[in-house]
């Protein structure tokens, strides 16, 4: 542990690494099923706000807030997913970006809106300033446990009939439908699962960072989450975890170069998507890169 601390990975950094790994997994689920959805930050916001209101205003324990936040996101995901998941690639991306922005703006104006409807002075989300002074009650072991359970469920999912249906939907929706897979059901179920996972990360993170504001869940946050999955790769569940770990730990390890942090992130994203399209956790991509470096004739015709 001392070694880790000496390179800048303190307990809070490690905790954030775990949270970001969960976020990476949430977008991995949809990407693995062939859906380019960017709604994760929106669901994260829903989870975080519902969770914080539960612990702050109703004095509930963290696990109850976790369940509440996840349930809220899951419930919202149903009416969003049903129409939106009919769209494909870029259209789906734009629609889900729009959803995320609407969520952010609604949270921003929630108090004013609720006050004008109920006629009372509602102080729940506290506008642009957000909620501060949230107790730091998320523990490292809870995060670790949550991540391990999530991975266990994912692995079981991949080896199940449903998991193979997911892969089939990604490969070709029409063929999958012809084989008797209920494509709409698979896509929506995964979308909801992804939303629930993002919301859980939202609840856990809110009780780590102690403050939340609508600005934390804008387009930048989606881009970060996407970067975890893209950097790590989406061919296995390990990819987004490694991606989340790396992108969270690296700025701390390289904190002397703090002002170049954003530049480094941009360069990494570009390099990975151009030279390692399968992400870091992808043996084939490394082999391909190695061949290119050594300038050996490639057998693959890609």
């Amino acid at each position: 542990m001392d070694l880790l601390r000496s390179i800048g990975i303190t307990e809070i950094v490690f905790q954030l690494m775990l949270v970001n790994a969960i976020l990476g997994l949430s977008i991995y689920l949809t990407l693995y099923t062939g859906m380019f959805s960017l709604a994760n930050a929106g669901f994260m916001a829903i989870g975080a706000y519902v969770g914080v209101v539960l612990t702050q205003n109703y004095d509930l324990p963290l696990w109850a807030a976790l369940i509440g936040g996840m349930a809220a996101a899951g419930i919202v995901a149903v009416p969003i997913g049903l129409p939106v998941l009919r769209l494909r690639d870029i259209y789906l991306a734009i629609a889900t970006i729009g959803f995320g922005e609407v969520v952010r703006i609604l949270i921003l104006n929630f108090d004013a809106l609720a006050s004008s409807i109920s006629g009372e002075n509602v102080q729940l989300t506290r506008g642009a300033l957000g909620i501060t002074g949230i107790p730091k009650i998320t523990e490292t072991w809870q995060l670790l446990l949550f991540l391990v359970v999530t991975v266990y469920i994912l692995v079981r999912l991949h080896h199940s009939r449903f998991g193979r249906a997911m892969a089939a939907v990604r490969q070709d929706e029409q063929v999958a439908a012809t084989m008797g897979i209920n494509v709409v059901y698979v896509k929506n179920a995964i979308f909801i699962l992804s939303a629930v996972l993002a919301a859980s990360a939202g609840v856990l993170k809110a009780h780590l960072t102690r403050t939340i504001s609508p600005g934390d869940y804008g387009f930048d946050q989606v881009v970060n989450i996407l970067a975890f999955a893209v950097l790590g790769g989406t061919s296995t569940w390990l990819g987004p975890i490694i991606g989340g770990f790396m992108l969270t730990a690296m700025p701390e390890i390289l904190r002397e170069f703090k002002q170049y942090r954003g530049i480094v992130n941009g360069v990494i994203l570009l390099l990975v998507i151009v030279y390692l399209p399968g992400g870091i956790v992808n043996v084939n991509a490394w082999k391909r890169l190695w061949r290119r470096v050594r300038r050996q004739p490639s057998i693959e015709t890609s």
Partner: peptide, 30 residues
């Protein structure tokens, strides 16, 4: 261009454009 040469999916090009955007904004910030 590098992604086009590889015939990468459109989504990859979207992601690389996000990377370029991050880079450009941060250079401007610097």
């Amino acid at each position: 261009a590098p992604l086009r040469r590889r015939n990468a999916p459109r989504i990859s090009q979207l992601i690389s454009s996000i990377g370029a955007a991050i880079l450009l904004v941060n250079i401007a910030q610097l």
